[in-house]
Design a protein around this nucleic acid. Structure first.
Length: 380
DNA sequence: GGGCCAATACTG
DNA sequence: CAGTAT
DNA sequence: GCCC
């Protein structure tokens, strides 16, 4: 893969007339990811990927300034390794991959030679690593709180349940704890499809003109789904909209026992743009599943489809490509003439909307070859 | 040594 | 605002 | 963590 980075870098140097900054290199690295349509073959370095992913998990659920960036860096390295078609057998070969430095390369060689790294073994036997991972798997509990609880002496879910050391739970965290086991599971895509079908039927009974789509990993065609992610809109050419759909739909779904718990409600039930998060199930004996229901204005349907189809890496890549071409992409649309504070890079002017109605429009303007949802898988 | 893969919503 | 989430 |  590295020849591609090298070439990209040279091209940038020529075009810009000055040495490529590290940011430009990063940009180039990521921004072609969304254009890269080569199929992801079987990975000959899967053992390495698996071990490094465990390290990612550890850093993800831990507090600390550097952990966030380690996660980022490991992901970049893993992405490079997954694309390497040859088995990695030497330190120099490993270090030649973009995003793999001396330390990761050393870990890779440990894995190649011993099947494991000392670092991971060390981390896994640490009490704080183990306990923080356990706690931060509770919905609504992140690394800060997990670490705080650990320092207060909590060690088990039972400690949390009992409110040891006086810890208090928010309603969402209480629900997360109550359904801890269910919420660690993924569901077969068929189950997501059935639940969606019921919700769609109820929604259409409210307004037959509604458009509903099941998003996320389901739309990407994956065999199982981490949650159910539903997008709703309504064509507004007849002068009507889906305003107030949440106000009607949510109680109807609760009444049928499809929705079981609310984690967070839209701030305005009557807004055309509204986000609901909760739990649902197939039936009284079904497992509790995470569900998000999002209403979006008809005008931003395409941008919303793009955004909520993912995957994450694909999205970030598209957004980065957009920004490198002077656009800005979010779930509402593709914008031009966005002004950002050069220092903080915070957006100060929204800019003008260029495209949002269809996914195809956005792909075309960005010069990205059209890809079906199933083709938009970059991580794994 | 310092920046890095976004942008935005909800809760307390 | 900080923390958690998508 | 990596890269400049």
């Amino acid at each position: 893969m590295s020849w591609l980075y090298q070439r990209q870098r040279k091209t940038a140097k020529k075009r810009l007339g000055h040495p490529t900054s590290w940011r430009m290199v990063n940009l180039l690295h990521l921004r072609w990811i969304c254009k890269d349509q080569r199929p992801i073959g079987p990975c000959v370095n899967q053992d390495i990927v698996d071990e490094l992913n465990k390290l990612v998990g550890i850093h993800e659920s831990r507090l600390g300034g550097d952990d966030k960036w380690k996660v980022l860096q490991y992901r970049k390295a893993i992405s490079s390794i997954r694309k390497e078609t040859a088995r990695i057998t030497s330190l120099s070969q490993a270090q030649g991959l973009f995003g793999v430095g001396k330390k990761t390369a050393t870990k890779i060689m440990e894995i190649v030679e011993n099947g494991k790294t000392k670092r991971l073994e060390y981390e896994e036997q640490l009490d704080d690593t183990r306990v923080c991972k356990l706690f931060s798997a509770i919905y609504g509990v992140g690394p800060r709180l997990a670490w705080q609880w650990y320092q207060l002496g909590l060690r088990t879910l039972q400690d949390v349940r009992e409110g040891k050391a006086g810890v208090k739970l928010t309603p969402a965290q209480r629900i997360g704890l109550e359904h801890y086991d269910d919420l660690q599971l993924r569901m077969p895509r068929e189950e997501a499809g059935v639940i969606f079908g019921r919700i769609k039927e109820i929604a259409l009974a409210i307004d037959p003109e509604l458009d509903l789509q099941l998003m996320g990993s389901y739309r990407r065609g994956q065999p199982n789904c981490g949650d159910i992610d539903i997008l709703i809109t309504r064509p507004d050419m007849d002068g009507r909209t889906h305003k107030g759909i949440m106000r009607k739909l949510l109680p109807a779904l609760h009444e049928k026992d499809i929705l079981t718990k609310d984690l967070s409600m839209p701030h305005d039930l009557d807004d055309l743009e509204a986000k609901y998060m909760g739990l649902c199930r197939l039936g009284p004996d079904g497992k509790m599943r995470r569900i998000d229901i999002l209403a979006v204005p008809y005008a931003s349907w395409g941008a919303a489809l793009l955004y909520f189809t993912g995957d994450d890496i694909f999205n970030r890549s598209m957004r980065l490509l957009a920004s490198s071409k002077g656009y800005s992409l979010n779930q509402r649309g593709l914008y031009k003439n966005v002004v950002r504070d050069p220092k903080t890079r915070v957006k100060t002017v929204t800019g003008t909307l260029i495209a949002s109605r269809t996914e195809e429009d956005i792909f075309a303007i960005l010069g990205v070859p059209w890809q079906e949802p199933a083709q938009r898988r970059r991580a794994k």
